[in-house]
Design a protein around this nucleic acid. Structure first.
Lengths: 166, 166
DNA sequence: TTGGAAAGTCAACAACGCTGACGTAAATTC
DNA sequence: GAATTTACGTCAGCGTTGTTGACTTTCCAA
């Protein structure tokens, strides 16, 4: 890890090669990031799409289908296929909107919550270990760069979720 | 790495919710990370798999098929489909090994290099902007956390690339 | 009451993963 | 020199997850 430099020049003189390493780090790290949940899901015949739906329903209980569509950035046909499987298998339940009855509000069932817990325990364990290995300052930098890397619309979604905590 | 102890509570007291935000940041940022190359590839009827192959062939000219398999972590059938398209369309050329003639060494053609340049210019521009927005210290933290998040095998691959060659 | 938003569905398709089986050429081992 | 292993290519088939397009049902709101 030793090819830099004394201090702040590292920003001004970031070579293409150095930036490229950041790109490769994203590529390899994302594989690690998804590896543990993937192993759990495999046994249950679910995939990442199911994981993402479960994650964000857990995160925002009662969210609507269209809200979930906006967060996940997929088509409703694609989401619907996933959601149907989760509902049929009793992980997610639906509640018709009381104010606007066209809307479907989504909730995890107990069974769904159990899976969510297993998935996020695994993923958080790795994230936590990485944080610990890298140190507290690194964590802030990590989040700052990721946030800056998002599209404005994605950042908006992200920050909406963030509200309610540091 | 800066493992400073004067702010360590932030590590010790990281709540599940705080770690979860890191997870969501990865999710949203990865979308941004791939968005620009995806737009370019779309017009050319290529996908991310082609991008990855092109990236690593550029990175390690003359690399073999089996080396590329190890880096990308896919099956040879999957890689072969991608590679065949790239060769047919004149972006990649193959050279039989001179020492070991079973090996196929892979190189970008001029046409391939042109596309590689376009793709990585786009991706680097975003990465560079994120770095600039987040600041030099953040960049180090970003890389440190990502590296710690990788599987050991992935980290090995990553570090082999960092050392300036195959 | 009618226009349009929200949700759901059917059909078809593409990218890109996977497994399994088989073939060929070259290197290595016995 | 024969047998085995390695590196690569290919055929066939399948699953997940994304896409468009077209259509219906339900329901709010003007």
């Amino acid at each position: 890890m030793a090819e830099n430099t004394s201090g702040d020049e590292s920003l001004l003189f970031l070579t293409d090669e150095q930036v490229r390493k950041g790109i490769e780090a994203m590529f390899f790290a994302y594989r690690g990031f998804t590896a543990d949940p993937d192993r759990i899901l495999e046994d249950l015949d679910y995939g990442r799409a199911h994981h993402r739906a479960i994650h964000f329903i857990h995160r925002s209980p009662g969210t609507t289908v269209s809200n979930l569509l906006a967060i996940l950035g997929v088509t409703k046909q694609s989401l619907n296929r996933v959601l149907r499987a989760l509902i049929e298998q009793g992980l997610v339940r639906i509640e018709k909107g009381r104010v606007d009855q066209r809307e479907r509000h989504l909730y995890l069932t107990d069974k769904g919550s159990t899976l969510e817990r297993a998935l996020s325990d695994a993923q958080r364990a790795r994230m936590r270990a990485a944080y610990r290995a890298a140190g507290p300052q690194a964590v802030q930098g990590f989040r700052a760069v990721l946030e800056a890397m998002m599209d404005p619309e994605q950042r908006r979604q992200y920050q909406r979720l963030r509200e309610g905590g540091p």
